[in-house]
Design a binder for these strands. Sequence first.
DNA 1: CTGTTAGCGCCTTCAT
DNA 2: ATGAAGGCGCTAACAG
Lengths: 315, 315
Amino acid sequence: MAKKLTILDIAKLAGVGKSTVSRVLTNDPKVKPSTREKVQQVIQDAGFVPSKSAQAMRGGSAKVVGVILSRLDSPSENKAVSGILDVIYAAGYDAVIMESQFCPVKTNEHLQVLRKRNVDGVIVFGFTDFDVKAVAEWQHKAVVIAVETDVVSSVGYDNTGVIQLAMDKLLAQDLRHISFVGVDPSDKTTGAMRLKAYQTCCEQADIKAVYGCGELSHDSGYQLTDKVLKKKTQAIVCASDSLALGVAKRLQELGRNDVIVSGVGASDLLSFIFPNTFSIDPGYFDAGKTSAELLIKQLAGQDSITHLTQTACLT
Amino acid sequence: MAKKLTILDIAKLAGVGKSTVSRVLTNDPKVKPSTREKVQQVIQDAGFVPSKSAQAMRGGSAKVVGVILSRLDSPSENKAVSGILDVIYAAGYDAVIMESQFCPVKTNEHLQVLRKRNVDGVIVFGFTDFDVKAVAEWQHKAVVIAVETDVVSSVGYDNTGVIQLAMDKLLAQDLRHISFVGVDPSDKTTGAMRLKAYQTCCEQADIKAVYGCGELSHDSGYQLTDKVLKKKTQAIVCASDSLALGVAKRLQELGRNDVIVSGVGASDLLSFIFPNTFSIDPGYFDAGKTSAELLIKQLAGQDSITHLTQTACLT
DNA sequence: CTGTTAGCGCCTTCAT
DNA sequence: ATGAAGGCGCTAACAG
């Protein structure tokens, strides 16, 4: 690893002025092709790499976007991040990633740091009581995933759709006794909205709503099963795959293999382990891609603040 | 968001020279406490944030480390990344994360980009045929996880230990008919090393080795079960939790609830769903922390190239 | 202790 | 089409 080369070094090496080298670097059209080629050759040979820090300082843009997610080990979020990375990287940006751990304070700290780093934009995975104001300051340089916000762009999941899809599929099979296992409505999206969707479906189909809510874990699903399971129950719709896993497990123990279980998340595990199950895909990966595309467009000034909803699909 | 403030602006605002402001920023001790306080006050009030780009350019260090992992949605890797993030962040660094998708070419591209970005160091998750040479150029500014390399520091998992631990536990229960399900030995670590560990254990315990290898998936575990399951089989040790999940599922189908299954990965799912199972924790999270600590020490010149092995434990 | 003065590496007028 | 010069925001000598 040779010592740090600068634009000036290769200017000398190529026998040109440093501005010409700069022009080559920025793809300025007003460079004689022959000169350009010569300079590029020298750059290659010398293994010169322009300093992003200097470019960033000069030009203002560091070509970096910050991503704040709540937990790296959340299957939904890391799928979305993969989508983000794909898009971001293809557009010549890089991502600095941070974990909020569902803590508003940490989130704001991270935003501070990202601001200081002069990142071009941020993508934040929202959670129930995160501080919208802090991200609002970023205006068009921010996109929030998973939570609706009016102040900045957002890409939400179709919390109603994921449940509707499951219900429709079950209703189409002429099932009339469908229970629901969700998470506490204090969680606005996975909790309240999905429960509401279930209730609405029940009303419309004129069937009785039977449900229970708890935490977002297998164990909670397992516990809640007995509460929502009646003799006539034909299916149990769950707000997430982890709940569904717990429910399916409990049903298996009880020998109720007749009851269909549905989850949300598109994990292959659920149906691999339990035959009588299916899962709805909220489109995590695509939501990630979408949000990244949105952000990049906004940074390029090609788009203004927008609110999108990722459509879900059956798996 | 007011316009860009610079160190000079707050220097004027505070009625001092800009170098004094700089000194405050860098915690230079030679500043009169009262002056320092005044400046800090102005910084607060004005909401000034020093530009990292400029600092990076001046000082040479951007306080960033690059992390190249193979897949974000690998439970093992994202646990490790969480560990890395914790440490990195506490040390005032940030992480830019990229996915190699097990592709040596992509990995090298990413390393290029990271170099161009002037990152202080890199942490790379190794995979079977990744290009050690590329990362070797980084010398003490790199740490490789999951694969042993002699040219740069590395933090490996105890591939022998994870299997030994499982075997010991089973042998202690006086079981003598223990099969193994692994992945193809073309994978050096999870494949070859763990198989070897199994074979060695068998030899030492003077029991017969019965094993099968395939891919790293539930399905593969499911398929291989019939191959390694004999009438007398008392336990099946698996090279990973996903394999174990498949094996346990198949055993359940076959009504062989007497057979104990072990996996590697410490996923809570395995034992939640299947009673007669346990999992070994290779210490992913800690390995992440360790590697980050190692890197930071090396960057500070406090440590030279080192090779560590993360110790595994029972869960 | 504090202000002044150079640059860091690059991009961008401004002349040529 | 190209070179010279200026400055981005900051830190690190060098003077007071």
